[in-house]
Amino acid sequence: MPATELTGSVERVHIDSRFLGETREVHVYLPHNYSPLYKYPVLYINDGSDYMMMGRMISLLNERFADIRATRFLVVFVPVDKSKRRDEYHPHGAKHEAFLRFFAEELVAAVEGRFATFPMGPARGIMGSSLGATVALHTVLEYPRKFHYLALQSGAFKGTTYEQVEGRRDLATVPVYMVVGLQEERFETNGNVYDLLDANRRMRDLLQAQGVDVDYAEYDADHTWGFWQEDLPRALDHFVRQLAF
């Protein structure tokens, strides 16, 4: 008979946010061998629904944790209403500051109050792609002691973000994983064209100038979920390597 597939579980958590003025739902992935007797690091994911569906991340995590030698961690998928995405994710968005406060102050407290986690910065990481990577970086800029890891896939970085990174020597304790596609030098959206390849190279150089350990790579790929999905195993491996306990 075939072996029983080891699958994790996904729990829905509802958070009444006073900063956003609404109830937000997040999805928390627990490995199949999760136990409240242990404590786990946590990786928070922006654009959570997209990572679950288009990134097929649940299947990837199930495969990963089927290996009993794999370091276990929890993954919090944070969905976003696409109609509000720019308001919350863009540095100039109307709800950007409120989203950062929700993420760092309400979301983390809700997750750590319900699940067995390490309540410390080095055990918390954030991942995102495109504008989701941008808001991940801004979350760490605003709360550098609360999050000590970043995975940035094809970040959509612009002037404000570079200005806020400049001179931030306190970021030196935050390991950063960055990837971008060579075909992203002409990314078109809403009638505008952006050179995301150059934007990521510039951000890499700026972060390194602040003393940040940046694991950076460029691939023959474009600004698509096919690229980011293929990259996920590398990103998760990097996250695990940075855990100091």
Rank of each mutant, 00 (worst) to 15 (best):
P36T: 14
A94K: 10
S129T: 15
M178S: 01
T161W: 02
R202H: 12
M178L: 09
G226E: 06
D213P: 00
R18T: 05
T160G: 06
L152N: 06
D170M: 05
F227P: 10
E63K: 14
F245W: 12
T7R: 14
D67V: 07
D16F: 02
D222K: 14
E105P: 05
D16H: 11
S49T: 14
I58R: 07
A217Y: 11
R186L: 05
P91V: 06
L206S: 05
V176A: 01
L107D: 02
V108H: 08
N200Q: 01
V214P: 02
N46S: 11
R145C: 06
T4I: 14
A235E: 02
Y51P: 10
R169Q: 11
F19D: 02
A94D: 14
T224S: 14
V76L: 05
V75Q: 07
T7F: 11
A133D: 03
H27C: 13
M120G: 09
S154T: 02
G121Q: 11
V108T: 04
R124K: 10
A221D: 06
F77G: 01
F239C: 00
L74D: 06
R168V: 00
F99L: 09
A172R: 03
A116R: 11
F118C: 07
W225I: 08
Q210R: 13
T117E: 02
A235R: 10
R202M: 12
A3M: 05
R124P: 08
F19P: 00
Q229H: 15
T224M: 15
S130Y: 15
D213K: 10
F73D: 08
S83W: 13
R241D: 01
Y44M: 11
N46L: 11
F147I: 08
F73I: 04
N33Y: 09
T23S: 13
D237H: 14
A66D: 07
D170S: 03
I15R: 03
A66R: 13
V176T: 04
A156C: 01
F239A: 00
T7M: 13
P91N: 04
R69V: 12
L30T: 02
Q153F: 15
F147H: 03
V10I: 15
L131E: 06
V26E: 12
Y194E: 06
D231P: 11
L107Y: 01
R12G: 14
T117G: 10
W228Y: 05
G121W: 07
I15Q: 00
E11M: 04
P122N: 08
Y29I: 12
A133K: 13
M127G: 12
